[in-house]
Design a protein around this nucleic acid. Structure first.
Length: 291
DNA sequence: CCGTGTGTTGAT
DNA sequence: TCAACACACGGG
């Protein structure tokens, strides 16, 4: 992260040091009786103590980290950030729980953990698309899309996956074929749809069955609409890739209402927001911070 | 014993 | 939500 600029000698501590403690100019930083500095952040009417430190800057940094983790990219912090290093730190922050981050801060192991994780990011940074200034898109591998048929959205509670696509992208071993597999698909809202995927030998077709009708109903899917399947690469644990499902209206369905939802929520369509590791991230980091 | 971090209050 | 202040408490 960018270092905090400024000096810290603009208060006098000699004249009346015993009675009044010097305030910090940094947000979330409080003086300690012994001359050290505490860092704290508030959440839901409660203070979360972030530890004590020798100098204000260190404490301020810790506060910033917590603020980013607790409040997201728009958090007001003591420092401003713009570069890729900072971006990786944001990824790191958003991919750990609050408890984990607070724990690291208290133990003063945060920096170490961060550096460790940056190795992962560096290793998989080639999967990222850096087109367009500071925008970093998560890796997404398009699989295929299908224009849904009337029977796909009818009462059969199944969608047929075109055989060629199914065998190419959703390979299943022979013993799974009969029972089917439970696959998790995440939609653009982050909702996970658990769908049964199996092979119907009678019709010699691959289908998504259990759970599909709920998806159809929830998404108000109509015949002619498009269902798109893709994979994302989780850059924290590079070996995991998640399956995703998105749908968009085809010609003729109630496009208006749908499109407004998509504009607000689908990062790929708008380009202003992207969803990474389950967190919405604005594309321009440089305008997000106060000084 | 001493530093930490909690209890508490009042302001924004 | 925030910082200021006092001090209880717990590890060494």
């Amino acid at each position: 992260m960018d270092m905090i600029s400024g000096t810290d000698d603009d208060y006098s501590e000699n004249a009346e040091s015993r009675s009044k403690l010097p305030s910090s100019k940094y947000k979330g930083v409080v003086p300690q009786p012994n001359g050290r500095w505490g860092a704290q952040i508030y959440e839901k009417h409660q203070r979360v103590w972030l530890g004590t430190f020798n100098d204000q800057e260190e404490a301020a940094q810790v506060y910033d980290i917590a603020a980013l983790r607790f409040r997201g990219q728009n958090a007001v912090t003591n420092l401003k950030t713009t570069n890729d290093q900072d971006y990786m730190e944001k990824l790191f922050l958003t991919s750990h729980s609050k408890d984990e981050i607070v724990d690291m801060l208290r133990k003063h192991t945060y920096e170490h953990e961060l550096e460790q994780s940056k190795q992962y990011y560096a290793a998989s940074i080639c999967h990222m698309d850096l087109s367009g200034s500071n925008t970093i898109n998560p890796s997404r591998e398009f699989l295929f899309e299908k224009v849904v048929t009337p029977s796909d959205v009818g009462k059969l509670n199944r969608i047929v996956i075109p055989k060629q696509q199914a065998e190419k992208h959703f390979a299943m071993n022979p013993e799974s074929a009969s029972k089917g597999l439970l696959l998790n698909f995440e939609d653009e809202l982050g909702t996970v749809w658990r769908l049964r995927y199996c092979y119907w030998s009678s019709s010699q077709s691959y289908v998504l069955t259990k759970g599909w009708s709920k998806f159809v109903k929830e998404k108000n899917l109509k015949a002619g609409d498009l269902v798109c399947f893709w994979r994302s690469i989780n850059m924290v644990h590079a070996h995991h890739s998640k399956l995703h499902i998105d749908c968009k209206p085809g010609n003729g369905s109630d496009f208006e209402e749908m499109q407004s939802r998509v504009d607000l929520l689908d990062p790929v369509q708008t380009g202003s927001v992207l969803r990474l590791f389950g967190v919405n991230i604005l594309e321009k980091p440089d305008k997000l911070y106060c000084t």
